[in-house]
């Protein structure tokens, strides 16, 4: 599904990603862990198409198609979804209105009519139940005054509504309380299928107890330096990143 080869990217002439390789297949869950500032969010933003970055080499392909030519909204139309580490506020635009616009714009890009209101309402009800979201919440302005955890849950609600092929969750667990973490993880698991894939960026092993990854990668200083199975996350939690640094030096 996603294939990244030798990706080098910089911002303001500062090299952040230094030759990164990653392959994600349909049906898989990948976790990316790594110290602060390693470049995890940068990677997520670049996949989603944020144009602040200078890509000096490497390729990103989604289902065999070169992503670099596509605008962020086109990538979204092709099924890329990013749950933001820091979701932005849009005053006066309700969650309902926002997600309705997102869905219909995506449909339009595919040459489809707007989703019938009835169908949309049904979907909103289903997904908000799945994520145990009070529907009153959906009439509030997008992210305005939301608590940290509410913002994250709202990101996953949007993901549930948009049903992406490739979902990237950038520290979606940070800020969630224990119950919310379970609910959100449960939601993500329900949406998983053999046709889509998830990349989970996290600092904590706890999320991975719920969303069990097929692969765990360590992103360190702009590169993926180690890949393992779920047990790698446990090891990282226990030992931190120093041992990886040492391995690298050798």
């Amino acid at each position: 599904m996603l294939k990244i080869e030798n990706l080098q990217a910089s911002i303001d002439n500062k090299l952040i990603l230094k030759g990164l390789n990653l392959e994600v297949k349909a049906g898989e869950v990948h976790a990316i862990m790594g110290p602060n500032g390693a470049g995890k969010s940068t990677l997520a933003n670049i996949i989603a198409g944020k144009d602040d970055y200078e890509i000096s080499s490497g390729t990103i392909e989604l289902n065999g198609e070169d992503l670099s030519e596509l605008a962020p909204e086109e990538r979204a139309h092709n099924g890329v979804f990013l749950s933001f580490q820091y979701p932005v506020e849009i005053p006066g635009v309700s969650v309902t209105n926002f997600i309705k616009t997102a869905i219909n714009q995506t449909r339009k890009a595919k040459g489809l009519e707007d989703m019938p209101a009835k169908e949309m309402l049904k979907m909103i009800r289903e997904k908000s139940e799945l994520l145990e979201i009070d529907r009153k919440f959906l009439s509030r302005s997008l992210n305005e005054g939301f608590s940290g955890g509410e913002k994250k849950r709202n990101e996953i609600f949007q993901m549930a509504m948009l049903e992406p092929k490739l979902a990237i969750l950038d520290e979606t667990d940070s800020g969630l309380d224990i119950d919310a973490l379970r609910i959100v993880a449960n939601g993500v698991n329900k949406l998983k299928s053999k046709d889509n894939a998830v990349i989970v960026i996290t600092h904590y092993q706890r999320l991975l107890e719920y969303i069990v990854p097929d692969f765990v990668h360590v992103l360190y200083d702009g590169k993926i330096v180690k890949t393992g199975d779920a047990s790698l996350a446990l090891e990282l939690e226990a030992k931190g990143y120093d041992w990886i640094k040492e391995e690298l030096v050798q």
């Binding site: 198409g49 605008a71 909204e73 990538r75 979204a76 979701p87 849009i90 714009q105 890009a109």
Partner: peptide
């Protein structure tokens, strides 16, 4: 960018 990422092009995002 947030809007774009959700499939909403810039013109529509501004309107929103």
């Amino acid at each position: 960018f947030y809007c774009n990422q959700r499939g909403i092009d810039t013109e529509k995002a501004i309107a929103l």
